[in-house]
Nucleic acid binder design. Structure first.
Length: 384
DNA sequence: TAGGCGTGGAC
DNA sequence: TGTCCAAGCCT
């Protein structure tokens, strides 16, 4: 750390009552912490899995996924030996699917390079796929008791208020400011509880809007509270609005009653997940022609879109799909055309067999509508 | 550095 | 209904 950075940090910390703050925070956490599944063990693998699942994902959403996942993959060995497709199936609906791919890859590395034991140095942990600065700090402090910062959105919100830090938390570089602060104030007698307590405080008390300062165990330490500006922190630049895509979706049933599904590419949006063939289009008029061309070009399947059976939209963090789903008349398949491009990424399956393949939520809704025969599907619903 | 990358809950 | 956002990471 340069001398200038040191001086900046001294400004931030100032005459802060570190020991009293630690006592107040830890006392509160020991009494008020939630009983969560991943808190029943300090096994580094279990902590690791929970931290990956919790990235940008709510606790209530994660719990059932975590329980199912740990029952099926209780150890590094079990997960490393599983097929990626099955891991995806356990991740289906949780989102950010590269987390599952990276976790599976990293667990294989731990098995092979470290004999199945999660490494306990910052360099080795951070080198694992999908493990960034936050997750590395969480594993090292919670599982191994090391005094490493674990700075997530909660921690930045809490500390931005306590120390009145006005840097934009949307900037990657800002995280380092908070890591430096944590290194100054972390309780070395219990780094695990200290880090978890900061996050728990952010989740339960020091929430984004209308923080519950009246119930806050460290309100007396809070500079934002003192000045009445807690609602204005943290500073965060607004995200850009995502674009909208119209997509025509093809439901093609062969004479034997099987439907065509497609496995998405290995990278990018919804990588490796299954879906019904679809193509970007402008309006309904263009959709039928585009679908017909796409089906032959990509799959060698000749078909004609007929009834528009379902319309629904799906909102991603950076993109919105408006999906127009057509039942298509199957008119044969040209083995010379298209098939080579997709190889084993296309399959003809029965409706029941679709349960065996991981689908994204937007296409899972189409599977469900197929089950119901599209009785109630001819209406728009936003992201539901 | 900024944008890609999912989903569902809260207000 | 729209908007924000929740225990981030990768490129």
């Amino acid at each position: 750390m340069t001398r200038k950075q040191q001086e900046q940090q001294n400004d931030i910390i100032g005459s802060f009552a570190i020991e009293t703050f630690q006592d107040d925070l830890l006392y509160w956490f020991e009494r008020q912490q939630r009983d969560l599944p991943w808190r029943q063990s300090r096994d580094a693998y279990r902590i690791w899995v929970s931290e990956i699942m919790l990235q940008q994902t709510r606790v209530d959403t994660v719990i059932p996924y975590y329980e199912r996942f740990m029952e099926r993959f209780p150890t590094v060995e079990k997960l490393a030996d599983a097929e990626l497709e099955e891991v995806y199936k356990y991740w289906e609906g949780l989102g950010y699917y590269s987390r599952a791919r990276n976790l599976h890859s990293a667990v294989k590395e731990v098995k092979e390079r470290y004999g199945g034991t999660v490494p306990d140095t910052p360099e080795d942990v951070h080198a694992l796929k999908g493990v960034g600065p936050y997750t590395a700090g969480a594993i090292l402090s919670i599982a191994y008791g090391l005094p490493e910062p674990a700075v997530d959105g909660n921690v930045m919100r809490v500390l931005s208020r306590i120390f009145l830090i006005e840097e934009d938390i949307a900037k990657v570089s800002t995280r380092k400011v908070f890591e430096a602060v944590v290194r100054r104030i972390i309780a070395h007698r219990n780094p695990s509880f200290f880090n978890q307590a900061l996050m728990e405080l952010g989740a339960l008390i020091c929430i984004p809007r209308s923080p519950r300062c009246g119930s806050c165990p460290v309100a007396s330490h809070c500079r934002a509270r003192e000045q009445g500006v807690q609602e204005a922190l943290p500073v965060k630049k607004k995200a850009k609005q995502g674009r909208v895509e119209e997509r025509g979706v093809a439901l093609v049933r062969r004479e034997d009653g099987r439907w065509l599904i497609h496995k998405r590419p290995e990278s990018g949006l919804l990588a490796n997940l299954w879906e019904f063939p679809n193509v970007e289009c402008q309006g309904e008029a263009e959709a039928r022609e585009k679908i017909s061309m796409h089906m032959y070009g990509a799959f060698g399947v000749k078909c004609t879109p007929q009834d528009l059976v379902m319309e629904h939209s799906h909102v991603f963090s950076h993109l919105q799909w408006n999906l127009h789903t057509y039942i298509c008349r199957y008119e044969g398949q040209d083995g010379e055309q298209g098939e080579a491009a997709v190889k084993d990424r296309m399959l003809w399956v029965t409706i029941d067999e679709m349960e065996n393949y991981p689908f994204s939520v937007s296409h899972k809704k189409i599977v469900e509508a197929l089950h119901e025969g599209f009785q109630q599907s001819l209406s728009w619903s936003s992201g539901q």
